[in-house]
């Protein structure tokens, strides 16, 4: 199968410091690729460059054969890219349902005049999006929180809410930044299943996650970053045997992994 997303020599510098340097890898449809590395290795920065939040200083992001480097996030969303955030970016004053509905923005948007006048077409668009969002909330186990203000939900619920919102875009490639952080074992397993399910439907998934057990369990391919550079990549078994990885990362992280439970 051809590449859906291909990262070619991506790099960025902040104030003279190379936050990410010359990172390349590729993701195919239905594949789960994890990016791992110690704190500060540049994983989130990499995500921010791929999703257009930061403009890369070097390299290219190629989506379905098109160079989309530095494209605005809302244009990338139209091309089928969607993401979640490490430090939650929800809309706190809106209900959980409305948060999920915003994921349908590209489908539900229409002429602003129709929205102002409350024309039947505008209402129908909004209703369709709400129905879709309700189904998605059910899928992530939040159906009963639909009408609650998102600002009042627990951390674990918000993580799932962000995933629901990202899924609403019906993405071709989904970037998940620590989806299981702050979740208990049961929740983590649910998210685990959800991700596998989404991948099985043909979505390319790029994952940053600290829970090593989860990463090893669900990834097809792992990219290891350290100090902003790619130090290894391969399937879970290969990577976990790689001495450089063990030195840079696993050795440090195993202790933390226990702490995460």
């Amino acid at each position: 199968m051809s590449d859906l997303l291909s990262i070619e020599g991506l790099g960025i510098t902040f104030g003279g410091l190379k936050a990410v340097h010359d990172v390349s890898f590729r993701v195919r449809p239905g594949e789960i690729v994890s990016v791992i590395g110690p704190n500060g290795a540049g994983k989130t920065t990499l995500f921010n460059m791929i999703s257009g939040v930061y403009r890369p200083g070097a390299g290219r992001v190629v989506l379905e054969g098109d160079d989309v480097t530095g494209m605005e996030p809302h244009l990338l969303a139209r091309r089928g890219m969607s993401r979640t955030f490490q430090n939650l970016q929800i809309f706190p004053s809106m209900t959980a349902l409305e948060n999920a509905v915003t994921g349908y923005h590209l489908q539900e948007r229409g002429p602003v005049l129709a929205d102002l006048l409350g024309l039947p077409g505008a209402r129908a668009r909004a209703r369709r999006a709400e129905e879709g969002a309700r189904a998605l909330l059910a899928r992530v186990g939040l159906e009963r929180a639909a009408e609650r203000a998102a600002g009042n939900l627990s951390y674990g619920s918000l993580k799932r809410l962000e995933i629901a919102r990202a899924l609403a875009l019906e993405p071709k490639v989904l970037l998940l930044d620590e989806p299981a952080a702050g979740c208990n074992a049961v929740e983590t397993e649910e998210i685990d299943h959800l991700i596998a399910e989404v991948a099985a439907s043909g979505v390319a998934i790029l994952l940053v996650e600290h829970d090593m057990k989860m990463v090893m369990r669900i990834s097809n391919h792992i990219v290891v970053l350290d100090h902003g550079e790619k130090i290894a990549e391969g399937d879970p078994a290969t990577v976990s045997r790689n001495p450089a990885v063990i030195a840079a990362y696993l050795g440090v992280e195993e202790g933390q992994d226990h702490a995460h439970g």
């Binding site: 999703s51 257009g52 939040v53 605005e72 996030p73 809302h74 990338l76 969303a77 139209r78 969607s82 993401r83 955030f85 970016q89 929800i90 809309f91 706190p92 004053s93 809106m94 409305e98 948060n99 509905v101 915003t102 994921g103 923005h105 590209l106 539900e108 948007r109 229409g110 602003v112 929205d115 102002l116 409350g118 505008a122 209402r123 668009r125 909004a126 999006a129 919102r165 990202a166 609403a168 875009l169």
Partner: peptide, 22 residues
Amino acid sequence: SPTGRALRALHGSEVAARTVGI
């Protein structure tokens, strides 16, 4: 309406609003 929701969304988090295509 969809427009109103998008406006309130960008009020809440501009970066998240952009990533959902707003």
